[in-house]
């Protein structure tokens, strides 16, 4: 079968591979090369070695964006996963209205980041107006605004994944534990959480990467203001490319560093949480 199939490579693989090469593979490889050059239109690149990378770490905007992004990611990942799991746990207890609640909590996830950003801008500015300030008054407001927005958007998504995980816990196992006299909390801690580890792995991955790479919500809610204080990494890279002539090479170097960070963080997380998963 393999032999007869091989000839069909152009039909089965080529269309995908061609699009993949144009959209991703070629730009990725050229991107790495360009991060070591100075250029404005890609074609006029001249080699400058690692000077772009040196510039990054002297760029206060980038350092600030990095710190902001890391803080934001930690707070978001912890809060979204805690609340998402809590909701999933409650919504698998067979209480009234479960389906309706599930529907409502998941809904924000379908609305795009740009639209969400402006929806929350209205609400948060409305609340802050009572204290005579706006979101762009202080980076603190922008930070917590983004955290709230992100929670609102992703809690329901994670809840769905945790529910799927919780429903896969075999009923007999819990029954057996209960007959042996385990309390509700013991069952949760000793059986459910270990059994739900695969869901935890994927939820952690999704929240971690989505928070770290956040762009649309950031652009719409604060646009980085005040000044550049609430610019996250993705937005900072964008502004470097399109807002600062002559800095395209630095932008590409920032993007490369950004890519390496995302890769290291997500691979480390996957290996660490995988190790905790139990066979089932």
């Amino acid at each position: 079968m393999q032999k007869s199939m091989k000839r069909y490579f152009p039909i089965f693989v080529l269309p995908t591979l061609a699009a993949f090469t144009v959209a991703f593979l070629y730009p990725f490889i050229i991107g790495i090369y360009l991060s070591f050059t100075e250029f404005t239109t890609v074609k006029d690149a001249s080699w400058v070695g690692i000077s772009n990378y040196k510039k990054i770490f002297m760029d206060r905007n980038f350092i600030n964006a990095l710190i902001f992004t890391v803080k934001f990611t930690i707070v978001s990942v912890v809060s979204i996963n805690t609340l998402g799991f809590l909701l999933a746990y409650v919504l698998t207890r067979g209480i009234k209205g479960t389906n309706l609640f599930r529907t409502v909590f998941f809904m924000p996830n379908l609305i795009g980041g740009i639209v969400l950003g402006y929806v929350w801008q209205l609400l948060l500015n409305g609340i802050l107006a009572r204290f005579g300030v706006t979101l762009s008054f202080s980076a603190k407001y922008g930070f917590w605004g983004l955290v709230i927005l992100m929670n609102w958007q992703l809690i329901g998504y994670m809840m769905i994944i945790y529910i799927a995980g919780l429903q896969n816990v075999p009923g007999e196992m819990i029954e057996a534990a209960r007959i042996d006299g385990a309390t509700r909390f013991q069952i949760l801690k000793q059986i459910m959480i270990p059994m739900v580890m695969p869901s935890f792995t994927i939820c952690l991955f999704l929240t971690l990467t989505n928070s770290f790479k956040l762009f649309d919500q950031n652009l719409a809610l604060t646009a980085g203001g005040p000044g550049r204080q609430t610019s996250m990494l993705a937005l900072d890279i964008y502004s470097t490319f399109y807002g600062r002539v002559g800095w395209e090479g630095v932008g590409q170097a920032k993007a490369t560093v950004f890519f390496l960070m995302v890769a290291v963080i997500s691979l480390t997380q996957l290996t660490l949480t995988r190790r905790k998963e139990v066979e089932n």
Partner: peptide, 8 residues
């Protein structure tokens, strides 16, 4: 991440 290939 998309930013890596955005410009190129």
């Amino acid at each position: 991440p998309f930013q890596m290939v955005m410009f190129t």
